[in-house]
């Protein structure tokens, strides 16, 4: 059996390899297609930013107490103010967010350096399971009660798209 197997023709081996790739692709399809890009919308123009690129550009690491997880978490991401300036030229007066769980909200006041768009937690990339692939957090929320989650409503999770509202 082993000899037979070892003597497989290259065509058979290539066919087996192709099957493996197809099976893997089919299995990974949901997560590969799902939540791997962030849509940045400015008027009629929609730009897809690969989450992998965002992760690669995440140049800031800090540790923050996450009230939703109830523990200190090492977060990695980009300053949201800088991100907005890169994408829109300036910080828009308001932003409309759409999340992967179909949550939608429009919020103002983003010209604030405390906000970060994070892509990783404790060294692991954010996924939908960990309320990713990108999430907004406030690096400095001093003075607020961490037991009152209502005070952290603006921490947008599972962000799917960000639309500038001028």
């Amino acid at each position: 059996m082993n000899a037979v197997a070892l003597q497989c023709s290259p065509w058979v081996r290539a066919r087996g390899l192709l099957a493996c790739v197809l099976i893997s692709t089919s299995v990974l399809l949901p997560t590969a297609v799902f939540a791997q890009a962030l849509d940045v919308i400015n008027g009629d123009v929609t730009q897809k930013i690969a989450i992998s690129d965002l992760r690669a550009n995440s140049d800031t690491t800090f540790t923050l107490y996450d009230p939703y997880q109830g523990r200190d978490v090492e977060m990695q991401g980009v300053a949201f103010q800088d991100f907005l300036i890169d994408q829109f030229g300036e910080v828009p007066p308001a932003l409309h967010f759409t999340a992967w769980d179909d949550y939608e909200v429009t919020l103002e006041g983003w010209d604030d350096p405390t906000w970060y768009l994070i892509t990783s937690e404790d060294g692991a990339p954010l996924t939908i399971r960990t309320r990713g692939p990108v999430r907004l957090v406030e690096r400095d929320y001093s003075g607020r009660d961490v037991a009152n989650l209502r005070d952290f409503n603006d921490w947008i999770w599972m962000i799917r798209s960000i639309e500038a509202k001028w």
């Binding site: 949901p30 799902f34 939703y68 997880q69 109830g70 769980d101 996924t127 939908i128 399971r129 960990t130």
Partner: peptide, 16 residues
């Protein structure tokens, strides 16, 4: 189903 369960997991994995 995987998509829905992932979302469900993210929403229920709360410290509280």
């Amino acid at each position: 189903a995987i998509t829905d369960i992932e979302l469900s997991y993210g929403l229920s994995d709360m410290h509280v």
